[in-house]
Design a protein around this nucleic acid. Structure first.
Length: 422
DNA sequence: TCTGGGGTCCTAGGACCC
DNA sequence: TCTGGGGTCCTAGGACCC
């Protein structure tokens, strides 16, 4: 039995989520912005056709947006995360195994009989159950399934589905795919390949093994084999345990005072602690960084980081805040216009793997600490993020990111449910 | 004026050990 | 006066992904 992979990818995912809950957006050009309303991170087809590239700074395209009546929205991750879960749960029972690859993509392992017909039905089912349109690419390796998916999305006549088994001349097809469109090859590697005369997926597939290995390392060699149909990347059904958890954000406006940096960093540290607890993990290392705005050429630049080990692995909010603020005071230099700060916790272990320590607080005290965290998490889930917070996180948050046009949390908060009028 | 956030994997080089 | 080589672990930096 030969293995075949399908890649299911939601079309313009964030834009599609918004359209499910506001049908007036259907057919209108729609752009979704990153945190801080900074970059364009999702575009409806209409916006793609206007030539606004992925990741473009929003302010550079303001005129295009105005001229074409583009609806511009802030991103709403609570909504997208929940819609993603619905899509994944729709797919899961239809195949023997699957890997959730990102918020809007899943690799499926297919049985022999599952081909174009199956993919069409699956596509219709996801559309009907969740409102989200998807494209499906099928191939003998993950890299080829990914490529099939891109082509399915781009070629309207295919109806959103392409199985490479139905393609007669693979080399002809591969010769129309430039290297930088191959999964795993970015701009830099494409330049290196071009220096050796390799410009298309077909060139790479037939490239000389030793040269590819030397130029791109094992990563490139794997891709070359995958293009030949030799599967090197397996389906990761169970997600690998996390190695680190980050929480970092740019400010809505520049920040100079230590006091405000501390508030922001304490807020991110609390968020990191919350994520640790959600995954039943403890961190041993805490890294902190600050940076000025790298795009601001006229201002003096400063960026710095520092790290420390916690006395005992922890996911308790005050522990992380204390460690983070101490590091911040080490690296803070007055007189700079800071744009960003963040925390990164690493060296993670499962709560259940913690070795008891001779000097640990009495068990009942540790239990109370855990209970306090659980109460805070519970209230914040119910009342909204940071409804209950530590004093060091501040109240006014003048540094908070901009999010001027966010839709409601239609599916995850009772008080933001959509209202239907009959 | 305005340029995201959260991850992964690989490699090279240094420290250290035997 | 002579002064190895192989293995492992760690870290920083680069490249990629969505």
């Amino acid at each position: 039995m030969k293995t075949r992979f399908a890649l299911v990818d939601c079309n313009n995912f964030y834009a599609s989520c918004e359209r499910v809950f506001d049908p007036r957006l259907i057919g209108r050009p729609l752009a979704i912005l990153s945190n801080n309303d900074g970059c364009v991170i999702a575009r409806s087809e209409e916006v793609k056709r206007l030539g606004v590239p992925m990741g473009a700074p929003a302010h550079e395209h303001k005129a295009t947006f105005e001229k074409n009546a583009v609806v511009v929205m802030s991103s709403n991750y609570a909504l997208y995360g929940d819609m993603s879960a619905r899509v994944m749960e729709t797919l899961r029972p239809c195949v023997p195994t699957m890997e959730v690859y990102s918020i809007d993509e899943a690799f499926l392992a297919l049985e022999d009989w599952q081909g174009v017909e199956f993919a069409r039905e699956l596509r219709a089912r996801v559309r009907q159950w969740t409102g989200i349109p998807v494209s499906i690419g099928i191939g003998p390796t993950k890299t080829l399934a990914k490529m099939a998916n891109r082509l399915a999305k781009k070629t309207l006549e295919l109806g959103g589905v392409l199985d490479l088994e139905t393609v007669r001349d693979m080399d002809e097809l591969l010769s129309r795919v430039p290297c930088e469109d191959i999964w795993g090859i970015g701009k830099r590697l494409a330049v290196r390949l071009a220096a050796g005369g390799i410009r298309t997926a077909c060139d790479l597939k037939h490239g000389e093994a030793a040269w590819v290995r030397k130029t791109l390392g094992v990563v490139g060699e794997r891709i070359r084999l995958e293009l030949q149909g030799v599967s090197c990347l397996t389906l990761e059904e169970v997600p690998a345990p996390k190695k680190g958890i980050a929480s970092a954000k740019s400010f809505g406006r520049p920040v100079e005072s230590l006091r405000e940096l501390e508030e922001a960093l304490a807020t991110y540290a609390a968020r990191a602690a919350e994520k640790l607890r959600a995954g039943r993990l403890l961190a041993r290392q805490v890294h902190v960084f600050v940076a000025t705005n790298p795009f601001s050429a006229r201002q003096p630049q400063y960026s710095a980081g520092a790290q420390t080990a916690l006395v005992r692995p922890s996911n308790h909010t005050p522990d992380l805040i204390a460690a983070a603020l101490e590091l911040l005071r080490e690296i803070y230099r007055p007189g700079h216009q800071y744009k960003k700060t963040g925390i990164f916790v690493t060296d993670l272990i499962a709560e259940s793997d913690l070795q008891p320590d001779l000097f640990d607080a009495a068990p009942e005290a540790a239990g109370r600490v855990r209970e306090l965290d659980q109460i805070v998490d519970g209230l914040n889930r119910k009342l909204g993020r940071n409804a209950i917070r530590y004093g060091s996180m501040g109240v006014k948050s003048r540094w908070a990111m901009r999010q001027e046009r966010r839709s409601r949390k239609f599916t995850t908060r009772w008080d933001e449910l959509p209202v239907a009028k009959a």
